[in-house]
């Protein structure tokens, strides 16, 4: 056994652990916010714009969805690093990480939005036109509310995926929860306990997100389901 017990060493390192949690959460929240906004806009464009406008977005979404999250993280990190270094700027790794997670999230959200919009019967748009709405009004009053409610469960799902995805950031040297833990483990030998502890924290975070999502869904449903 090691001289220092697990709880003692955890207590001693609590600040580092908190900072790790903070980094992970900060990255997740930024990525979810940016990804949701860009993704929803992109989804609308992909549903309603002309073919040649849709094409680059379609390509972006399909390519990003075909690449593992970790490769997106590495690619963006190394690209930005080389690019900025040529101007003598040092890249903050956290920023690269947030951009990478946002890119993945955007592609996911764009596809979700497109699917949700296309699932709305065409009659809804026609009904909107019939009462004299302009396209913008149809979007805002008819399509967006219906699409958002449809999207809520997969949105929650992709939020938990993003939270889990923050663990990838340790691999580009961001001191997220997992990297902090790994450094702690190097100073003692409680590997199993520490990793289970981290797993538990992520599990709790995601369960809270999932639970909140389910509660929100229950309140928002208008089909009485």
């Amino acid at each position: 056994m090691s001289p220092v017990g697990f709880w003692e060493s955890l207590l001693a390192a609590r600040m580092a652990v908190f900072i790790g949690i903070f980094h992970s959460m900060f990255a997740a929240v930024c990525a979810i916010a940016i990804g949701s906004f860009c993704g929803i806009v992109m989804g609308f464009i992909m549903t309603f714009a002309r073919k040649y406008v849709v094409f680059p977005f379609r390509l972006f979404v399909d390519v990003v969805r075909g690449i593992p999250g970790l490769v997106v993280v590495f690619t963006i990190y190394y690209f930005l690093d080389v690019f900025l270094r040529s101007y003598g700027v040092k890249l903050p790794a956290l920023m690269a990480g947030i951009i990478a997670l946002s890119v993945t999230n955007t592609a996911q959200m764009a596809e979700l939005t497109r699917g949700a919009l296309q699932a709305i019967p065409r009659g809804q748009i026609e009904a909107g036109k019939a009462i004299g709405f302009r396209f913008g009004q149809i979007l805002y009053y008819i399509l967006l509310p219906q699409a958002l409610i449809q999207m809520l469960p997969p949105w929650v799902n992709s939020a938990t995926e993003t939270v889990k995805g923050t663990t990838l950031l340790m691999l580009i040297g961001i001191s997220d929860l997992l990297l902090v833990t790994q450094q702690l483990i190097a100073t003692n030998n409680h590997a199993l306990k520490y990793y289970c502890f981290i797993g538990l924290i992520y599990f709790l975070l995601n369960t809270v997100i999932e639970f909140t999502g389910k509660a929100a869904e229950k309140r928002l449903r208008f089909d009485g389901g």
Partner: peptide, 19 residues
């Protein structure tokens, strides 16, 4: 579903030797 895969991998590779 709510635990990151990377953490599972570390548990399996670095953690299980503790047992």
């Amino acid at each position: 579903r709510n635990t990151p895969l990377l953490v599972l991998i570390f548990i399996a590779y670095f953690g299980l030797p503790d047992l």
